[in-house]
Each structure stands twice: as C-alpha cells, then as structure tokens.
Design a protein around this nucleic acid. Sequence first.
DNA 1: AAATTGCGCAGTGATGTGGT
DNA 2: ACCACATCACTGCGCAATTT
Length: 539
Amino acid sequence: MIDAGFGANIKAMSLAEQAFLKDQAQQRLARAEAAGKRPLVPGDLVFYWRRQVAGREKERGFTIGSFVGPARVLAVETRVDDEGRLRPGSCVWLHRAGRLIKAAPEQLRAATDRERAIEELKGPVEIPWTITSLASHPHKKTYDDITSEIPDDMQWDEAAQQPVLSHRIRGKKSCICAHVDDFLFGGAPGDKVHDHLMEQIKQHFSWGSWESSSFTQCGVTVTQHSDFSITLDQQEFVSDLQEIKLSRDRSRQVTAETSDYEKHQLRAVLGALSWFTGQTGFQFSSDVGILLSSVSTSQVETILRTNKLIRDVKDNPGELRIHAFPDAKRLELVCWADAAWANRPDGKSSTEGIVIGFSSPALLEGKIAPVSLMYWRSGKIDRTCRSPACAETKGVVNGEDDLYHLRYLWSEMLLPKERLVGCHPDTVVVNASGTLVTDSKNLWDKLSKEIFVIKGAEKRSDLEALSLKESQDNSQLQLRWVHSDAMLANSLTKPSEKWQILLFQKMKYHWRIVHDSNMVSARKRKAEGIDPMHSEVKG
DNA sequence: AAATTGCGCAGTGATGTGGT
DNA sequence: ACCACATCACTGCGCAATTT
C-alpha cells in the first residue's frame, strides 16, 4: 500500500481530534456545573439579563431580552440553602460603569473565560464609593433596581445564544479617509467636536478645493442624500465603454478562433469592465470573471458575449448604496458565501462568490433589513475541487477569511488604541459581530455536530471546515443556513443566475436571512409556491 | 496643453518545480 | 499523471511626474 503512512496519519489525526473535542465538551459541562453550584462571591464577573423593547419589536407585540455586562459583583444579600445555593428572594449588588445595580440571582449568568480575559485587558476599575453609602441614601435613587426583570427559560436560552458585546461603543465623532492626496471628512452636522476639528484643519492647511454632497473620487461619483445615505456610481465610466468592432462577415463565424489582436481587445475591454465590477458593478462580477477566463481559448462567440455584456452594463449600470442606519446601536457584518463547482471554461475549476455587507441587528432576527455592501468577490478557486461540497467549503472558508479581515478593520475604527495595540486579533475582532451565511446543507450538518469527525472522501475539506468551527469559538462567528434562492452570493458564482442580486436591487438594497427550521430546498419551495423571501418567525 | 511613463492595485492564464 | 504552489506576463484603473 503506497499511502499507508498518509492513511495512518489521517486516522491518528482524526482520533486525536475526536478525543480533543470530547474532552473540550466535557470540560465545558464541568465548568457550567461548577458555575451553577458555586455561590456568587464579591468580585465575580457576571452578565445580567434585561428586557429590551426596541421600537419595532414593540409593534409586533413581543419583547426580546439580552444579557448585558459585564458587571462586577459587589455584595450578595444572602438567603442560602443547605447546599450553598442562593434561594429566590436574594439580591445581588452589581457595579458596572459607575452605576450600581440591584439584581436577582435568577437573572445573572457567570462570565465566560473569554469574557473575563477581555475584561482583564481593560485593567483595574476603580469603584468610587462604598456600597453602603450609596444604597442607604435616604431620598435619592442611587441605584437601578432590575430585580423585577426575570427571564423565563425560553428568554434565557434566546439571550444566551446572542453574542454579548462586552464594551459600550463610545461614539467616535469625526472621521477622515485619505487616498494619496484626497481626503474625505465625515461627521454629524452640528456636532461640536467635529465642527471644531474641521475648523482647525481648515486653519492649519491650505486646500485646493472643497466639495460636498456630490463629487468624483478615484473615478467614482459619490453622492450623499438628505437622509445621509450615500450612493456610488460610474455612469460616466460606463458610457465610455466601447464594444469590440466586428465586421458582418466575422461576426457570423461564431466558432472561429480569435486572432491575437482580438484576444488583445478582449483583455483590454474586460480589464476595464473588471475595474467597474470591482468598484460598483457587483452584479456583473461573475460575467467578467468567466469571460476573462475564456480569453485564451476564445472564439468569435466570446467576443459577441462580451459585447452583449457591455450593452447590458450600459442598459443598467446600477449603483452601490450605502445606507445611513440612523437608529442602529451597532452594525452587523454579514457574509454570504457560495460556490459553483466546475463551472469555468476549463471544465474543472470552480467559482466562489463572496458578498459582505453591513446591516442592522434586525437582519439577524429574520427581518428584512437594509444591507450596505462593503466587499464582494467572484473568482476562480485556486485549488481544483473534486466535488461540489469541496468547492462550497472552500468558498465559505475564504469568505470567513474576508469577513474576519473586515471585522478587524471595523473594530479598529470603534476601539480606543489601548484595546488594539499588542492585543490578540481574536480579542479585537469579537467587538464586531460577524455572521456567515451558507446554503450548503453538507457544511451546515458537519458544523452542527458537536463531535467533528474527519472521514470519508472529503478529508481535506473537513480539515478546512474545522477552521470555521474554531472561529465560532475564537471570534464568536455566527453561522446561518438559507435556501439557495435566498443566497445573495449565488449570483456571483454563475452569470446565468442573477435573480437574487436583481431582487436585492429591486428591494432597494434590503435583504433577509430566511429562517427555515425544516431546511426546505429552494427547488421544493418553488414547487410548493413559497416566496423565496418568506421566512418563519424565529423561535 | 497634451502625451507618455511609472507606480501599486486587481484579475486571469501559462509555466516550471516538487511531490505523491 | 495529477496536483499545489510560486513566479511571470498580460490586461485594466487612477494618479502624479515627466516629457513632448
């Protein structure tokens, strides 16, 4: 047997992996048990549950809650039973960000190791007053009493699944973006800090010209609207594109091979198009990628297809919309990743499609929400994939990579310097919550299992998928499954399947993560006449 | 004033190398 | 024979410096 060594290796790795995961799961259980039994003591780091009634949820008539924190236990007014457990009716005094909170033990959960580690990075927190002086003040209400808000089991579970942001976003007031010698300034109108900074900047430097509302930067027209949203377009650029000229004779020779000069023309015009698809024309990404791949083996028919694409682009150049999100307390980064297996001109290469956007937390609750596209990509997967599952895994893993990068960038913008310099990337990234959406059942099932087994025909894909599992733990990555008609990235893998992205544009750049506990396929949904965007109510 | 050149960025395919 | 990987050549863009 030639590959005996390799096979034995995989077996050993698989065994080790299983043992490791089993052990990890056991430790977690043990910790949870210990945390449940151990009474709270002053100094413990905890999170407390609060009922949250955001504007929109109120209308639909249900409330959601979440854990907030972390808070430090200051004192416990004990009513302890024989085994040392807190009995209902006890109260726990918490300290968080200079506030004193009176809470019930039923609404507390211990902080995880990770949360503790992050809190420690912030350094010691001074507690300025003694608890007695605060709590015993005769008239003033010096603390928040939240003991009336006690979650039931369902609410507790729901909240436990939500990631907790362990810091408050301290609003940054002003921002500058620079490209070589062009600068973009942003800030809330009337904001004192921002206005003052702008005043100083204008005093200290002499500038060529100032533009606002609508201008061109790096060949892209940027327009800000009255609701503060921004659109980017390349109207002018697109209208300058020229079709490749073909004589009537030549255009009839569809199957004829292209000449060197024609290949040159193809590369030239596709190069221009790829600039467009990279800046604003995301809906044409897959067309350009596939055509660029077929230049070397192109026929006259390829030129005709390219010319058709140019006409399509001119007919509907589209725009890139950046929403304003005036009400969102935080933004979610969501990545849709998909792949098409062996669909490239060479007959064996696969295509990945990745779309990452900002949205409001409402999107994760299954609602239709605005999505601002931040990053997208349609391209050849570097390795040859032997099965659709392999391609799918590759695409999703690459998508997670890009998502991680964007989460880091976003965290950099939000966090103060002390929380960035010298910190492990994971502890930085957890401040920007990230969600990865896939339409692969294969991958979803694999990752849903507590024990991850590496076996069968796709050992290598399994190993790569493992990195996603790791990211779920290390960077609090959330995973979702949707049927393929609700998969935004599908349109970036095949030129012929544009309906998702067209629907997205028709919905004015809004989307939904369709929730379906039965995981019904898109084909079956269609047969049963279910709208692609129809979603179960979560929970 | 207009044209050319160089830079860094993106994507693709072709090519060679090393491995099983 | 096939694959992964690195490197190269080719295309585009915007921008600035230089040449014409």
